[in-house]
Amino acid sequence: MAILDVQHLTVDFALDDGGTLRAVDDTSFTIDSGEVLGLVGESGSGKSVTALSIMRLLDSQADITAGRILFDGEDLATKSEAEMRTIRGQRISMIFQEPMTSLNPAYTVGDQVSEVFRHHLHMGFGESKQRAIEMFERVKIPRPKDTYGKFPHEFSGGMRQRVMIAIALACGPDLLIADEPTTALDVTIQAQVLSVIQDLQHDMGLALLFISHDLEVVAQMCDKVAVMYGARLMEVGESTSLFTGPRHPYTDGLLRSIPRRGQPLTPIAGTIFDLRSPPDGCRFHPRCPYAEDRCRRETPELRALEPAGDGRLAACHFPLAGVGAKA
């Protein structure tokens, strides 16, 4: 059963010049309990805005103009701010890309973790401290007791991200959103942090929305993958099959642009369009090597592909065969 069911989510940004920009356009996906969904795409494709929409933490100039965000059967898009506050940090948590700035420099990390217990579970200082130290243990921070009284600046990025994870998972949420959690970290640290997330996701049976532009990390972490391009979903499918047999030319292009030993690097031609003036028809058509007239006129819907059954969805008039790249 899907813990999160995003249906036709559309988010518009009001621009200073009076115009609007559609950052997320008619996007739908689901995540089951205990499932890990990877959301991939280039910068500016709408991944983070999707995540923040679920948290309802969008900037004041952004607005969810259509769609529903069903969390455990209830539409988050229509919840009041007060209702959202009981959900955030308790049932849905989020960790961010920048561990260096995401923690409050003026408070100890211990306080920032225990605060969640005090706030959501109404614990006292003693108990919340105890629980915070336990969380530090779970995210594998060495000397958790000493850690409690230290300030963020005393830690490395990897440790800070562990603190963020401790905060996020403190109340045992149903859904964790991790927005590029390791992008800012060194490769070795990255692996450690990912393993912490993976272990805890597994132990706690979390649903995880894992946002990344790193396809390899996504392949390693996720059960399911959704590919975004220019505010719309291009393709959704099982992680393994999607990576081995992309059906959307964009997914295909992404995979080809990963540097691999013995294979030529072929970046996708052209550049991403300006979100303020999206092209007609399929948004990928200006860069698509297979584009035809119809692609320029008709916007393809995200739809189940033949052969049915493997749950693969793609928004393409002329999907690829799915076994390797088209010749």
């Binding site: 948290m55 933490l57 701010e81 959202m84 506050r85 009981t86 959900i87 955030r88 940090g89 308790q90 948590s93 989020m94 961010f96 920048e98 700035t101 995401s102 923690l103 409050n104 420099p105 003026a106 408070y107 605060e115 969640v116 706030h119 959501h120 963020m164 905060i167 996020a168």
Partner: peptide
């Protein structure tokens, strides 16, 4: 506009706590 404020909000803290504490 700082990131730590978004973190505080993501924790589900009340606006009062976000402003007057963080």
């Amino acid at each position: 506009r700082e990131d730590y404020v978004r973190t505080a909000r993501a924790k589900g803290l009340s606006e009062r706590l976000v402003i007057w504490k963080h």
